[in-house]
Simulated scan of single mutants.
Amino acid sequence: MERSIQQYIIEHRQEIAKGWLDTMKDVSAEPLTNVVSENVYVSMNSEFLDIIFSHQIESPEHFRTKLEEFIERVVKLGWPLTYLTRAIRLLRKVILELLMEDEFARDDNYVPMETVQELELWAEPIYHELEDIYATSWENTINLQKVALQELSAPLIPIFDNITVMPLVGTIDTERASIIMENLLEGVVKHRSEVVLIDITGVPVVDTMVAHHIIQASEAVRLVGAKCLIVGIRPEIAQTIVNLGIRLDQVITKNSLRVGVERALEITNRQIISMEE
Rank of each mutant, 00 (worst) to 15 (best):
L21T: 00
M209T: 00
V259F: 08
A135Q: 07
A264T: 04
I246S: 08
I95C: 09
E118S: 15
W138Y: 14
N140E: 15
N183T: 00
I214K: 03
I126M: 14
T171I: 03
R86D: 07
P167L: 14
G78H: 13
T33K: 11
L248N: 01
E68N: 11
D173H: 09
P204C: 13
N143M: 12
R3A: 12
P235T: 01
L248G: 02
V259C: 00
G245N: 09
D26S: 10
A135L: 12
P125Q: 07
A217W: 10
I159M: 11
P158S: 04
I241C: 10
I57F: 05
A87R: 09
A238K: 03
E118M: 11
F160Q: 11
A217V: 05
H191D: 06
R106M: 14
M166D: 07
T208R: 12
T253V: 05
D199R: 02
L90P: 00
I180N: 10
L98G: 13
V42C: 04
N255V: 02
A211H: 03
Q56G: 03
T253L: 12
K93P: 00
Y134W: 11
V259W: 04
M275S: 05
T268G: 04
V116R: 15
I95H: 09
L77N: 06
N255T: 06
Q117T: 00
E58A: 07
E262Q: 11
D199F: 08
L244D: 10
N45G: 07
I126V: 06
T201Y: 14
V116F: 14
V35T: 04
E2A: 11
G187A: 08
D102L: 11
R247K: 15
M100F: 04
A238H: 06
E47S: 06
W79A: 02
R192E: 13
R263Q: 09
L96N: 10
M24T: 00
L168V: 00
L21H: 08
L184N: 06
R106E: 15
V259R: 14
L257F: 13
Y127L: 11
L21R: 02
I272K: 05
L156C: 09
E72Y: 01
T208N: 07
D107E: 15
R89F: 13
W20S: 10
F104C: 05
V75L: 02
L84W: 04
A154G: 10
N140R: 15
I273Q: 12
P155E: 05
L184D: 07
P60K: 03
V242P: 01
V206P: 10
H62G: 01
T136N: 08
N243C: 05
N109Q: 14
I126K: 14
S59D: 15
T253P: 04
L21D: 05
L90S: 00
Q150W: 03
L91R: 13
E118W: 11
M275L: 13
L229C: 01
I233S: 04
S153W: 14
E15L: 14
V35G: 01
H12P: 03
V188D: 12
A105H: 10
S37Y: 08
K190R: 15
L168C: 10
R176M: 08
Q6C: 08
P31D: 02
E11V: 03
V169I: 15
E15N: 11
M113N: 07
I246Y: 13
E124F: 15
V195S: 06
R192K: 08
Q7D: 13
S178R: 14
